[in-house]
Amino acid sequence: MSRGQTPSQTIGPFFAYGLTPEQYGYPLRSIAGADLRDPATEGAEITITGRVFDGEGAAVPDAMIEIWQADPQGRYRLPGSQGNRGFSGFGRCGTGSGPESGFRFTTYKPGRVDDQQAPHISVIVFMRGLLNHLYTRLYFADETEANLRDPLLSSLDPGRRATLIAELSAPGEYRFDIHMQGDRETVFFDV
């Protein structure tokens, strides 16, 4: 009574019309986009902007970034909750629709999901040339105290911890670049 996991394969270069159609101007409704705001949700609005860099420092123009987060009160969307209305906690953005090869999410700052972890957003990275999606996490530079006490951040090599901290570039505006390789290689997790 056991079956082996279906192997992962790359998302390839041509995902956009299927997974991020509205962002790229294709005639299909997107299930999720880069703006997670919801009229019934109150909280601090933030933007998260970044780029994905390959091993030669070139910005990757055909990556897809997904984010998953709790709402401003620290609650995750659960199956069946509110008839799937309200804040979804999920966003998708390709890096190929603008001139900068970047991604930009508009959302709310998540609340703390438990007593230990600092506020964070789960991030998944897909791209041509990546045979398995990669998990990472985004923490907030202005949560210094909470970040110091976060068990996962604390467990990391101090030299690599900064790769997970989104910098505050203006009030409510965070910068989060992802480096696939090199000295600043982002910490990716085996979840």
Partner: peptide
């Protein structure tokens, strides 16, 4: 070659 991470997953 340039897109896969080189450090072990944590």
């Amino acid at each position: 070659v340039l897109r896969g991470p080189t450090k072990p997953l944590v």
